[in-house]
Amino acid sequence: MKQTDEEYLESHFKEFEVQTFYTESFTSLEELVETFVEVNNQQESEDLDAFIDLLICMLHVDGEKRITPAQILEQPFISGISINILNPLTSDEIKDILPRKYSFIKLQATGQFGQVFKCESKHNQKVHSFKLPYSHHNMEKEAQLLRRMMCKGLEDQHIVQCMAFIKTRLGKAFIYENLDMNLTQFMATNCPLTLGDVRSIVQQTATALKSLKCMRVIHTEVTLDHVWLCAQTARLEVKLTDFQSSIHSKSAEPGMKLQNVNYRIIL
């Protein structure tokens, strides 16, 4: 027996209760997040805070306070640099820590494990970039890996050349070759990059990663901040730096979260 439309609907669909939803009003993004978002760990909480800060800077109603696309690259959520860096040193404090045979030139970058700055040797006037750790970070693991790489001559494979190590009251500092700026800083003033520059950067970075693969080393933190341009070179030349988070391939396990979340490929 054929049912009418009304009979079919009555037999197949139950009557739905009508519910009323109330939209709460919020005075800020932070208040909205605190009300509805649950975080599971400290890292996720820091990432969320950095993301909210980025949104506020991007959406500011005052055009003078709103950040530009170039400045977005420098924001902690995009750059991957922790927003909780503990007590970075001032230029005067760095000068006080440096051995007397070096003259401080300028601070170049502040990262999660330490700071990079440029100095000149008073003995031969050669310019080098220094990496100085924060007092709470032990850099011995990275120092040992750099020694191995320099013994294999990997500075010719676009791995940063570490000239020497010096002791400071904050720990072991690294003396690098003369570096100019990292890719974050370079792209902030040179966007968009030419295809030729993109090709050079990709080729050289891939060469560095290939050399690490031969050593069975995983960098785990390849970001724009850890690829640096060499200073005073006729062509665009980059070097891969910062191996503090590197691991041996035999230590890698499925499911490990290694790469900074902002640069991670999700498959």
Rank of each mutant, 00 (worst) to 15 (best):
M1T: 13
M1L: 08
M1A: 07
Q3W: 13
Q3A: 08
E7P: 03
F13Y: 15
F13W: 11
E15C: 04
F16K: 14
F16D: 07
E17Q: 08
V18G: 02
Y22I: 14
T23Q: 12
E24M: 05
E24W: 05
E24D: 11
T27M: 08
T27I: 10
L32C: 06
L32Q: 05
V33D: 05
V33A: 15
T35Y: 13
Q42W: 04
Q42D: 15
Q42N: 10
Q43W: 09
E46F: 09
E46G: 00
L48G: 03
A50Q: 14
F51I: 11
D53I: 02
D53V: 04
I56T: 15
M58Q: 14
M58C: 15
L59M: 11
T68E: 13
A70S: 13
Q71A: 13
Q75F: 03
P76A: 09
F77K: 04
F77E: 05
S82L: 08
I83C: 05
N84R: 14
I85G: 01
L86H: 07
N87T: 09
N87C: 06
L89M: 09
L89P: 00
L89Y: 14
I94V: 11
R100A: 05
Y102I: 04
F104C: 03
F104G: 05
I105M: 12
L107E: 10
Q108S: 12
A109R: 06
A109G: 12
A109F: 09
T110R: 08
F113L: 07
F113I: 08
G114E: 04
Q115N: 08
K118D: 09
K122T: 06
N124P: 07
N124I: 10
Q125N: 13
P133H: 04
P133C: 09
P133K: 06
S135F: 12
M139G: 01
E140N: 06
K141A: 10
A143H: 01
Q144Y: 10
L145D: 06
L146E: 01
R147L: 15
R147V: 15
C151V: 02
K152C: 14
G153F: 07
G153M: 06
E155G: 05
H158R: 10
I159V: 14
I159D: 07
M163C: 11
F165H: 12
F165Q: 02
I166V: 15
R169V: 00
F174V: 13
Y176Q: 04
Y176K: 01
N178V: 00
M181L: 09
T184A: 02
Q185V: 04
F186K: 07
F186P: 02
M187G: 10
M187E: 09
C191Q: 09
L193R: 05
L193H: 02
V198P: 02
S200H: 02
S200T: 12
A206T: 14
M215H: 07
V217H: 01
T220H: 01
T220W: 00
L224Y: 03
H226E: 06
L229D: 06
E237R: 10
L240A: 10
L240F: 07
L240S: 05
D242Y: 02
F243H: 03
H248R: 08
K250M: 13
Q259I: 04
N262H: 07
N262T: 09
I265L: 14
